[in-house]
Nucleic acid binder design. Structure first.
Lengths: 252, 252
DNA sequence: GCGCGGAAACTTGTATACGAATCCTGCCCG
DNA sequence: CGGGCAGGATTCGTATACAAGTTTCCGCGC
């Protein structure tokens, strides 16, 4: 853990856009931030698979803090749809159903479709450079075979775009959506699918640079649809799923 | 208080779309829900003006619960941008700056622009009836001079629309946006502005019914812009604001 | 042998206690 | 007379203690 560039969203009860926050300010809030990030990264890297139960006492011992602190971190994680909190029964890693996954992707398409033109109105050459740097980092992780980091960096590219749209509220929504999408991808991506995408991010930046708004918007839409299409989101109910899964085993 | 139809968002760590929740299930979670709603309604009705400090001990005594419970409610309120939590300095009612207000409205326009066509794809006649009923309730509050309820019901109409779009994620975002807009309107609306709008909701439903997509989308956009335009969102810094406010008093 | 209580162990929910930071007041000094 | 500093009071942040709910497992009856 402790990937130094990991970027779990720090929003929530913060109006200011950004803060240094490099070193723990007073050793106060940094603690539950640490728990938040650790769980966040673990879930995203699939070290904590969906459905995993997170007992409070365990985390207490791991991080040497009281249950009060752990609880706050869990509450935030639940609010961001990374965990699910079941009353009196503890927290488990979220496992969004296919229907929910589709809705998350649909919402994301709806937002990003409109972010592209906003970026084109606002972006400076320096911003485009930033986007290209992000793409470079992404490719690097891709070629290194670091799947977890690739998923994260790939999401980060979209977050930079959202930031360039110049609306912090929108950026907050996109942060939540990208996070949830990453979780869904980690959950449902077909195992054998090729990790590297075919430079759609690169092409998108080019289209933005050239001012081709309709083409850029279109590419964004197709890009997101393609990602969703790769997922194994068979729309079966939990019951059928179970029946199907057992159908090959009951005759020895 | 205890307006029986008040609808503070219950989302967050809940995957299920809706629950009865009429009576307190076990007296357990209902308590901090009660605090949440009470503060929510009080802020929206401007009984708690922006900047008001909410001491934890006060709420503890009012609701006869421990600080633990109050704290959780405050955390949720802060996450929904109704309060602002300042470390070691307590919670205050949020007072979004003009710049933030603009961003909230911009984000809302962006989403609702796309919600209209989605509604037109999904809505049944029964849904349109629901919308018209909501409008009726809104007009009633309007004519009764109940400004606080009118703001709330007026927002509820938009939430029904979001619900009819058939995407729960989107509905969650819209819930947050409508809430924040209500707070902003309560903050910045010009005092003398007429409370009743000129039946734009009614016309919107008609256009949706007739299948005139472009016209409906356009009306929605203009509707939201009109609301924003009515606000007193002078882009002045806090300092200038103060200087201006005192300029009429220092020469007796 | 199988299913069904029931009690113990464990986990979560809530309240309370204590340490730390902030705010307020009054005093001292320039 | 005004500004700054120190001490007390208040309020927040964290840890701990106790109560209530859930899970587990064992023993009993069928």
């Amino acid at each position: 853990m402790t990937g130094k560039l990991s970027a779990p969203p720090d929003r929530a009860h913060k109006t200011a856009p950004a803060q240094p926050e490099d070193k723990p300010k007073r050793g106060a809030r940094a603690v539950d931030l640490r728990i938040y990030r650790a769980v966040f990264n673990a879930v995203m890297s699939q070290r904590l698979p969906p459905g995993t139960r997170l007992a409070e006492a365990e985390l207490c011992e791991l991080y040497q803090v009281s249950r009060t602190t752990v609880r706050r971190a869990l509450l935030r994680l639940a609010h961001d749809h990374i965990l699910e909190l079941r009353p009196n029964r503890g927290a488990v890693v979220a496992s969004p159903a296919p229907a929910e996954a589709r809705e998350v992707f649909a919402a994301r398409r709806l937002l990003e479709r409109q972010i592209v033109p906003a970026v084109m109105r606002n972006a400076t050459p320096a911003d485009l450079t930033r986007l290209r740097q992000s793409i470079a980092a992404e490719h690097q992780a891709c070629h290194a075979g670091d799947r977890a980091n690739w998923i994260r960096l790939s999401g980060e590219f979209h977050l930079i775009l959202a930031e360039l749209a110049g609306n912090r509220v929108l950026l907050g929504f996109m942060t939540e959506l990208v996070t949830r999408c990453s979780l869904i991808i980690a959950l449902y991506d077909s195992p054998g699918s090729p990790m590297c995408e075919n430079d759609e991010h690169q092409r998108l930046v080019s289209l933005i640079e050239q001012g081709l708004q309709d083409e850029a918007t279109d590419l964004m839409e197709r890009h997101l649809l393609k990602i969703e299409a790769r997922l194994r989101l068979a729309e079966r109910t939990q019951k059928l799923d179970l029946a199907q899964a057992l159908s090959g085993q009951d005759l020895p």
